[in-house]
Nucleic acid binder design. Structure first.
Lengths: 130, 130
DNA sequence: CTTTACCGTGTACTATGGTACACGGTTTAT
DNA sequence: ATAAACCGTGTACCATAGTACACGGTAAAG
């Protein structure tokens, strides 16, 4: 099973420009080419893009994924490295959650300051923030 | 109390380029000028930038702040509008928190798959994601 | 009076994650 | 044989929130 870029992109569920973009970013290695220079992909490449997309959804940036793929491609000490990578991201996500919770509390505090009669012209929220 | 741009930016705790940027984005109205064309700011302007910065920390984008300042500047129905604005953002923040919690759970699931012996070469995390 | 510090404008650049388009060559279908 | 569909490269563009710099005028200090 081999694909040219359009079919490949479709299989991956992304735009073909995105494939070229990932190639520029070295998330995908240089693909094989036809004599005319057309890119050729295999099903393994589909799996690789699937991996990128799934881990991206877990909050990893493309540059993090690039580093991660370096480890995966080297095929060394993968388990340890993956565990640390995921643990680090988990801590980051936990921190983001805490930050957002604080913000949510503040937004709620602001709402509490509003009078029942909301047609008033002096706004306590604005006064609190200025 | 009157400031030129550098002192003003310092009072606000931002870069002076940021002040010019906010002016371009119409978050700050055109300031008064000296005869030579130098921008002049008052303490009210410091408060305005303070408002922008504080509400930005609550997760509002500059374009949202722009809309909000339009309401504040019109000085009409402020209370109602502010209440709705803050409520809408609170819902967004709550959704972000839920999304991040799901991600955190998934990251934790991934970690659980790791064997005790982490020097192994076959990584269950990678296998799960591909 | 000259040097330094400051200010003006405009433009380009940063990072992130792509998208869009122009121009030219290739492949496929009719 | 020719048109449509596809692919190549390179470059520009989108939003977001600024930062940096070049070039020239102004203000303040010595």
């Amino acid at each position: 099973m081999i694909y040219r870029i359009s079919e490949f992109a479709e299989k991956c569920g992304v735009n073909k420009e995105t494939i070229r973009y990932y190639e520029r970013k070295n998330l995908l290695q240089e693909p094989h080419r036809t004599e005319a220079g057309y890119r050729i992909y295999s099903y393994d490449d589909v799996k690789r893009v699937g991996f990128i997309k799934r881990i991206q959804e877990l909050g990893f940036s493309l540059s993090e994924i690039y580093k991660l793929l370096g480890v995966v491609d080297k095929d060394e000490v993968r388990c340890q490295d993956m565990f640390e990578f995921v643990s680090k991201k988990q801590k980051e996500v936990q921190k983001q959650i805490e930050d957002l919770k604080r913000i949510e509390t503040m937004l709620d505090d602001l709402k509490q300051r509003c009078p029942d009669e909301k047609q008033l012209h002096s706004c306590p929220i604005i006064e609190t923030l200025t």
